[in-house]
């Protein structure tokens, strides 16, 4: 046995400061995730975050339900209910028909009432 040894000091962890500090660093790094979680839990964003997930879930449920309703609705009902764009804008029927058919009618024809031939 080494005669310089007189007590339990060889077991003192700080005899090797680098190793001791490495242990501190490792422990700190291992705790970083939990510290972040705790810091976030007390931040102002936490209540918002608690609502985000349920709100998104509810929105997704509503979207699925709406899609289901649309899928089950008869196609004829959808067609009848849907107004044309031109009609919605208040365009005269003659212009609407002309536009939808792609006809290149003269302006005077469009301006005359139905059934009256232009010159």
């Amino acid at each position: 046995m080494n005669e310089r040894w007189r007590d339990l000091s060889p077991l003192d962890p700080e005899r090797d400061p680098e190793r001791w500090e490495a242990l501190m660093r490792r422990t700190r790094a291992a705790a970083a995730g939990e510290l972040s979680r705790r810091a976030f839990a007390v931040s102002p964003a936490a209540p918002l975050a608690r609502w985000v997930r349920p709100a998104l879930a509810m929105a997704a449920s509503l979207a699925v339900a709406a899609g289901g309703v649309l899928a089950l609705t008869p196609a004829s009902a959808q067609t009848a209910a849907a107004p044309g764009v031109a009609e919605a804008m208040g365009m005269p029927y003659a212009m609407t028909v002309s536009a939808e058919e792609g006809a290149n009618d003269a302006a005077d024809r469009l301006l005359l009432p139905d059934g009256v031939e232009g010159r």
Binding site: M24, L35, V42
Partner: peptide, 25 residues
Amino acid sequence: ARRGEGDAFDALMRRHMRAAYAVAL
């Protein structure tokens, strides 16, 4: 430390790590 303050955890660790090490050893 419960609020996630890293310096508080660090202080606890530095204060008690030696005792923890003695028991662990």
